[in-house]
Amino acid sequence: MSFKLNGVEIEDTFAEGFGMWGTRLIITAASRKWANTAAAEMTGFATSVIACDCEAGVEAEIPPEESPDGRPGTAVMVFGFSAKKLATSLLNRLGQCVLTCPTTAVFNGLPEEMADAMIDVGKSVRFFGDGYQVKMRMGDGWEARQRFWRIPVMEGEFLVEEKVGAKKAVAGGNFLVMGETEAATLEASERAIEAIHTVPYVITPFPGGLCRSGSKVGSTYAFLRASTNTPFCPAIKHSLKDSQVPEGVNSVLEVILNGLDEPSVKKAMGVGIEAATKVEGVKWITAVNFGGKLGKYQLHLKDCVGGG
């Protein structure tokens, strides 16, 4: 079963999403270059929890007039399997990638009223100050209370918010862009990523937001938990009995996204699919699932493009 959008066949199926814990930070720095550098470092090697400690990505660039300290900022989101694992990953990455990066400061990007839990960040990083850290309180008794830590570093001072918000989130939103050529598939996928990044509270943790080597559970080798997604590999579509690559499709890219809630993920999938279908040469869009056996969320493509 399928339906058409902008002349492209969309399979009437669903992406299978998983429950994870997510958080959002805003990293600011003296210039856009350093804010983005810290964000890129912090979100590196965080594509999938299959082999990484967390999943992370850049959500948006924050202009100086909207950032907490008036400097260029970058919002990053990090996802982990539990609040505890998320906290560990966050602390390690913050300590090694942002604290070390010149001119940066870190702010909570998920207000307490939106969060399911608050994770100690500055409260733990502060010990790096070796007793010279300074607790900073703002708004006591007259405005929203905020707590920071000022940690002396060789360059000057590192400012970090004491706690950041975390909430139960959705990971594993996805869809496959299937095109006639590699170029058309890549262009359509890039357009999808651009569109997805207009949706708040969503990240695409893979390189450039795309995964060319989608995986399936298990392999022919006993020692390997996951292997290439053979049913969607065009190069072996005629060698494989259960290939799911339609005729005329010669390249497939997977768009994978995580978000802080189901509506955000669905909205992002919808705008991404819509953008991809506008590129000539795109033949099919489908999604990856495990028959609904593994994930908590079933993100139906029809709901996503139809606004639910």
């Binding site: 300290d69 400097r71 703002m138 405005e143 000057g156 001072e157």
Partner: peptide, 17 residues
């Protein structure tokens, strides 16, 4: 002698609030 980031937060709060 330095330009600490925390002071920016206070100064912006004074102007905006």
């Amino acid at each position: 002698t330095y330009s600490p980031i925390f002071m920016r937060l206070y100064l912006r709060q004074l102007a905006e609030t």
